[in-house]
């Protein structure tokens, strides 16, 4: 599958490093807008085309591209996503634009393999939605779930900073639509400490009366294992706990809450290990891109 990455910032460059190792995805170009960017320089060094004319380049070369990975920003994606679809290019959207169906690999990887556009929510959404889903799948109702994502200041580029409302809104929506919570909230915090902190994510979930606490804790552990298959640095920082309330959540009063404390250590592909937020996003993008490519290849083979 011939692929282009649009956006030569932190995410796009990290994704390039991963894609160069792929047997399934064939990277044609890393597309930027700044010819002097570090990302484009690295692309050239790896023998990858590095145009700086942005989405226009992709549209002009549409016949050579099957799939794009959009690592620009929400507003750029919103402006161009229809053009990609019209040109027959599948778009994997790494911005919080949320135009296509949301995909969180361990929850719904195989639900949208034919969609012209899929959205990867946010880094925090990739880290926490699986845990919300893990809790929801063993209880009848999850009235309210909340996530807090704290990333090192150094790992949050200008796109993330200007997009912070889109981040929280898109993440919160994913906790409901994919995670299965009835109500939700997402919070993002930047921490400037030196040396930079690892990405931290916390999930709080309101647990109704009569829930099987042991089953919840087991399900959380299982899910941590599933995510770490494609994000090796994803782990439970502490044992998940169930705390006693009562808690007056927006979804009603609950007697308990589950607390899941997560850490994501990056693979160090582009930015150092602290930038787990980049890693979980680009790892999810690879997982989704490869699943789409494999499914199309097997369909073409059988056709």
């Amino acid at each position: 599958m011939r692929c282009a990455i649009i956006g030569s910032g932190n995410i796009g460059t990290d994704l390039m490093v991963k894609m160069l190792r792929s047997d399934v995805l064939d990277l044609v170009a890393l597309v930027g807008i700044d010819p002097d960017s570090d990302g484009l320089a690295r692309a050239r060094k790896n023998g990858i085309q590095a145009p700086h004319t942005g989405p226009d380049w992709v549209l002009e070369n549409a016949s050579d591209i099957d799939m794009i990975f959009d690592a620009t920003s929400a507003y750029v994606h919103v402006r161009h996503y229809k053009q990609y679809a019209a040109a027959g290019i599948t778009a994997i959207d790494l911005t919080p634009a949320a135009r296509g169906p949301k995909v969180i690999p361990p929850v719904n990887l195989y639900d949208h393999l034919d969609a012209p556009n899929v959205n990867l929510v946010t880094c925090g959404g990739q880290a926490t939605t699986p845990m919300v889903y893990a809790i929801r799948r063993v209880i009848d109702e999850l009235p309210y779930a909340e996530m807090i994502s704290t990333v090192a200041s150094k790992s949050a580029g200008p796109g993330t900073r200007q997009n912070i409302d889109e981040f929280t809104k898109t993440t919160s929506t994913a906790l409901r639509e994919i995670g299965g919570a009835t109500k939700s909230k997402a919070i993002m915090v930047l921490n400037p400490a030196e040396p930079p902190i690892m990405m931290r994510n916390t999930v709080f979930a309101g647990i109704p009366d009569g829930a099987d606490h042991a089953a919840i804790l087991n399900s959380i552990h299982e899910m941590a294992g599933e995510v770490s298959k494609y994000v090796p640095g994803y782990r439970l920082k502490n044992e998940p706990v169930i705390e006693e309330g009562p808690f007056h959540t927006p979804g009603g009063v609950v007697p308990h809450r589950a607390v899941v404390l997560l850490e994501v250590e990056g693979a160090g592909d582009y930015l150092p290990e602290y930038a787990g937020n980049l890693d979980i996003m680009t790892a999810a993008a690879m997982r989704v891109g490869e699943a789409i490519a494999i499914s199309r290849a097997s369909r073409e083979a059988s056709a």
């Binding site: 921490n191 502490n238 607390v259």
Partner: peptide, 21 residues
Amino acid sequence: RRKVVGGQEDMIIDVALDLAK
């Protein structure tokens, strides 16, 4: 010591669990 900033109240539980352990 961890240089947490405003908003990281979740780290209170993290530290409490670390200390208990």
